[in-house]
C-alpha cells in the first residue's frame, strides 16, 4: 500500500529528528509528530522528554488518539504542563525540537499555512500556522513535515510567509531535507527514499537544492518497524495524507 508507506516514512523520519535528552513537543493538528514521539520512545534507547499540547508530560499512549489535542495525552501524566507553560518554555528557548506542519515550504524552511492566492482574497483559505510564527524563530530546532511532495507544495517563492525561523529538517513522503538552523542557508537533500533517486526528487521539488551529500534513507530498523506495528494506527496516519487533510 503506497499510502501506508508514505505515512510510515514520514513518521519514522520525524522520529529520527529527535536527539538524546531533548525536550520535544507536538502541537494541535499534529498526529504524525505525536506518532513519531511514541515511536521514538519505543524504538530508541535514549531518553527524551515529550510534551504535548494536551498538557501531558511523557505520555506515550498505547492507542493513539485521532486528535493530537486529545486528553488521552494526559493519561498517567505526573503534571499538567499547560499551554502557558509550554509556550513560555518555547519562547525562552528551552523547547529543543518543535514539530510544525505546513501547506507550502520554501528552501529556507519558511512556511505558508495561511492562504493560496492573495491573503485578503484567498483562492483557498488554509488553517493558519497555529503558534508557528511565534515559535519558529525562537526554537533551537524545528522539524517540518509536508505530506504532499510536489512543485506546488515545495516552492521557490511562498505566496504568504506564515512563519520563518530555525527550521532544521523537512520530511516528506519521499525525502529528508536538512539545513543548519543557525545559518541563513538553503535546504540540502539529506536522504531520499530507496525507491526514488535525487533526480526524481529534483523533478518533484519547486525549489532548487544541493544534492551532493544525499544518500538513500536508512531502511526502517526492526525496532522502528515493531514500534509502528505496535501502534496499530495505520488508518490514523493515512488520514494525515493529502487525500484527507484538504491541504492539496
Amino acid at each position: 500500500m503506497p499510502e501506508r508507506r508514505d505515512a510510515e516514512y514520514l513518521v519514522v523520519n520525524l522520529a529520527r529528528a529527535i536527539r538524546p535528552n531533548e525536550v520535544t513537543f507536538s502541537g494541535v493538528n499534529s498526529v504524525l509528530p505525536m506518532a513519531a514521539c511514541v515511536l521514538a520512545r519505543r524504538a530508541y534507547d535514549f531518553d527524551f522528554t515529550y510534551l504535548s499540547v494536551a498538557g501531558g508530560v511523557d505520555v506515550f499512549p498505547k492507542k493513539l488518539p485521532r486528535s493530537s489535542t486529545d486528553p488521552a495525552l494526559l493519561a498517567g501524566t505526573a503534571a499538567i504542563f499547560s499551554n502557558a507553560d509550554f509556550y513560555d518554555l518555547a519562547t525562552r528557548g528551552k523547547l529543543d525540537l518543535i514539530f510544525l506542519g505546513a501547506a507550502q515550504v520554501d528552501a529556507f524552511g519558511r512556511t505558508n499555512v495561511s492562504a493560496i492566492g492573495d491573503w485578503a482574497h484567498p483562492k483557498v483559505r488554509l488553517p493558519g500556522g497555529g503558534g508557528a510564527a511565534v515559535m519558529m524563530p525562537v526554537a533551537p530546532r524545528v522539524a517540518l513535515w509536508r505530506s504532499e511532495h510536489t512543485t506546488r507544495t515545495l516552492v521557490e517563492k511562498l505566496e504568504f510567509i506564515t512563519a520563518a525561523g530555525k527550521t532544521a529538517v523537512l520530511v516528506t513522503p519521499y525525502a529528508v531535507f536538512a539545513r543548519d538552523p543557525a545559518k541563513n542557508e538553503r535546504f540540502h537533500l539529506a536522504s531520499y527514499r530507496d525507491d526514488t533517486d535525487p533526480a526524481a526528487i529534483v523533478a518533484r521539488t519547486g525549489f532548487s537544492f544541493e544534492a551532493a551529500r544525499a544518500v538513500p534513507t536508512a531502511p526502517m530498523t526492526a525496532r522502528e518497524r515493531a514500534a509502528l506495528d505496535a501502534m496499530d494506527a495505520f488508518d490514523l496516519l493515512e488520514n494525515e495524507l493529502p487525500r484527507v487533510t484538504g491541504l492539496r
Binding site: 493538528n29 499555512v113 484567498p122 483559505r125 493558519g128 500556522g129 497555529g130 488520514n239 484527507v244
Partner: peptide, 24 residues
C-alpha cells in the same frame, strides 16, 4: 481572531469557515 482553524481528528479543514473567509 484565530491562529489555526480546523476540525482536527483526521477530518481536515473547517469547510464552512473556509467558505465564509473565501467569500469575504
Amino acid at each position: 481572531k484565530a491562529g489555526i482553524v480546523a476540525i482536527e481528528g483526521g477530518l481536515g479543514l473547517a469547510p464552512s469557515y473556509r467558505r465564509a473567509v473565501e467569500d469575504g
